[in-house]
Amino acid sequence: MALSRNTSKIVSPAIRVTVIMIITTGVVYPLLVTAIGQTALPYQSNGSQVMLDGKVVGSKLIAQEFDSPKFFHSRPSSDSASGVDPDITVEEANSQILSISDATGIPVNTLKTLVELDMERNRNANAIVFAPDYVNVLELSVELVKNYPQAYQQEINGEK
C-alpha cells in the first residue's frame, strides 16, 4: 500500500502538469489568438477571401481552377508542392497573355500592364527582397473582370 501511495506521489505532478498544460496551451492559447485575430484581423483570419461584386469568389491564397480560356491559369496542381499554389511566375503569365487577348479581345499591352501591376503589388507586399516576382492568379482575374465586365459576362453569370 505504501508503494502505491509513493507511486501516486511521483506520478501525480506529471498528470497535473499535463492537464494544466492541455488547458493552457491546447485551449486557452488558440482561443485567445482566435479572439484577437477575429477582432483585429478578420480578413486574414478567415482565409483572405476575395470579393467581386459583393460576392466571395475564393481565397487569394488558394488556387482555383479556371475552365475558360479567358482567364490566366494556375499551375497544374501536380506541379506545385501544395497543390494549391495561387501564384505563377511573370514569365508564365506573359506566356498566357496572347491566348487570353485572343479570347477576350483585351489588348496585349493592357494585359501586360495588369500583370506588371499585380507583380508590383506582390513585390511591395513582400518588401521587395523577401520573394521573387510573381503574379497572383485570382487577384489578376478579379482585376480583369472588374475592368472588362462585358468580356467576362458569360463566365461570371455561370452561363457557358
Binding site: P30, L31, V33, T34, G37, Q38, Q44, S45, N46, G47, S48, Q49, L52, K55, V56, V57, G58, S59, K60, L61, Q64, E65, F66, D67, S68, F71, L138, S141, V142, V145, E155, I156, N157, G158
Partner: peptide, 17 residues
C-alpha cells in the same frame, strides 16, 4: 495571411461560379 478561426472549413464560390 494565416487563417485563425474556429470554422473547420470555408466554402465559397469561384469566379466561374
Amino acid at each position: 495571411g494565416s487563417p485563425q478561426t474556429m470554422e473547420p472549413s470555408i466554402t465559397t464560390g469561384t469566379i466561374e461560379g
